[in-house]
């Protein structure tokens, strides 16, 4: 069964099956907005807040999702499977990505280009 997912900031919408994570469905449908990383619940870049709709979730890293986060539906999109139409806000990745110039990370300018302005 397919459900509608809405990214609140951009109004971007896409369909997501029940066996598919919110993140993988976004990537598959060519949409953008949630940063895509490991797709295994380990790296934390795909963090979102589910603001409406039913879902199921799989185990995800406690390093990126506290008990408090879980209680408030702040979760990793690659571990969330919709059971109804879902709306969400993007929390992960962007901040982390643009806040440091240490190491090999691309600078702010490159970043905006890479993210296509999302």
């Amino acid at each position: 069964m397919q459900h509608q997912v809405t990214i609140e900031e951009t109004g971007e919408q896409y369909r997501c099956g029940e066996q598919e994570s919110l993140l993988v469905a976004m990537a598959r449908s060519g949409r953008r907005g949630i940063p895509v990383g490991c797709r295994g619940g380990g790296c934390g870049v795909c963090k979102v807040e589910v603001t409406g709709g039913a879902f199921e979730k799989r185990v995800m890293s406690r390093e990126h999702v506290s008990a408090d986060d879980l209680a408030c539906d702040r979760v990793l999109a690659c571990r969330v499977f919709p059971r109804g139409d879902v709306s969400l806000k993007v929390l992960g990745g962007m901040h982390k990505a643009v806040c440091t110039s240490a190491g090999l990370r691309p600078g702010l300018q490159t970043k905006q280009k890479l993210n296509g302005g999302v």
Partner: peptide, 24 residues
């Protein structure tokens, strides 16, 4: 050289954002 010089990806000569930022 890491990006345009092909240090990371010689055929494509580009930086891959996930490679630079995604870790566990």
């Amino acid at each position: 050289g890491l990006g345009a010089g092909g240090g990371l990806d010689y055929p494509q000569r580009k930086l891959h954002e996930t490679f630079l930022t995604v870790v566990t």
